[in-house]
């Protein structure tokens, strides 16, 4: 085992859907270092989401191993996984997934409360993080009362409030316009640089890819190729990954 933050070793995932057997992953091996900004690309059905979920401890491999900070995730029980997700991972979703009935402050504070601090302390911490993402003036608004970009900022604040080692962002700009998407990418990049958080995104967004340290293509359940920063040639409106060795 290497000293990488995240280490996937020959990860396989097989689903049985009735009589049909689906091979979501067919042996994925990948290391991700601390502080890296990694984009995972792949068409839908490529196994990208499955791999993504395994890093977050949401799904377990059929064979192979996933280590995060040296811990084999498959060995953890339900409560340990809950602790792991709470303290080590910050999840960001394409559709924001805020609790619609709670205010911005409450949405962030509840994640903080799960980490074990008192509710009063959680509100203080939540307010500080919301302020940091530029929403200090929207603390008591419901998600429905703010724009999509602001909702994603609330979600980023929620992901950051427990100072995770890893941010897992699934198409974080997928529901946002170009300009707002750029702001969100800037925010994520800032988190990586200022706090040393490892950012892993699943995305099709070109802006996101150009901000990445590493781009991983997954196709048919296998890693198709991995490109480092500067290796990715971006053309107008599309990305050409096949011309680079």
């Amino acid at each position: 085992m290497s000293d990488a933050l995240i280490s996937a070793r020959d990860v396989t995932k097989v689903y049985h859907m009735g009589a049909e057997t689906v091979h979501a992953l067919r042996g994925v091996t990948l290391d991700i270092s601390r502080g890296e900004y990694v984009s995972i690309m792949g068409p839908s059905g490529s196994g990208k989401s499955t791999f993504f979920n395994m890093i977050g401890g949401l799904d377990t491999p059929s064979a192979g191993e996933v280590f995060v900070e040296g811990f084999k995730l498959a060995d953890l029980n339900g409560r340990q996984l809950a602790w792991f997700r709470c303290h080590k991972i910050g999840f960001i979703f394409q559709s924001f997934n805020l609790i619609t009935t709670l205010t911005a402050l409450e949405n962030v504070a509840i994640a903080r409360i799960f980490s074990g601090v008192t509710p009063a302390q959680a509100r203080t911490d939540a307010a500080a993080v919301l302020d940091r993402v530029g929403l200090g003036h929207r603390l008591h608004h419901l998600p429905s009362q703010v724009s999509g970009g602001q909702q994603q900022r609330i979600a980023i604040a929620r992901a950051l409030v427990n100072e995770p080692a890893i941010i897992l962002a699934d198409e974080p700009t997928g529901n946002l316009d170009l300009h707002t998407g750029e702001e969100i990418i800037g925010l994520l990049n800032g988190m990586k640089q200022d706090l040393g958080i490892t950012v892993i995104t699943a995305t099709h967004d070109m802006k996101m890819i150009s901000a990445s340290d590493k781009v991983v293509w997954i196709r048919d359940g296998r890693i198709d190729r991995v490109a480092g920063k500067g290796e990715v040639k971006i053309t107008v409106g599309s990305i050409d990954g096949d011309t680079v060795a």
């Binding site: 809950a82 997700r85 303290h87 991972i89 999840f91 979703f93 609790i99 994640a111």
Partner: peptide, 8 residues
């Protein structure tokens, strides 16, 4: 989502 945030 709550479970992703660490809810038991």
């Amino acid at each position: 989502t709550l479970k992703c945030l660490g809810a038991r």
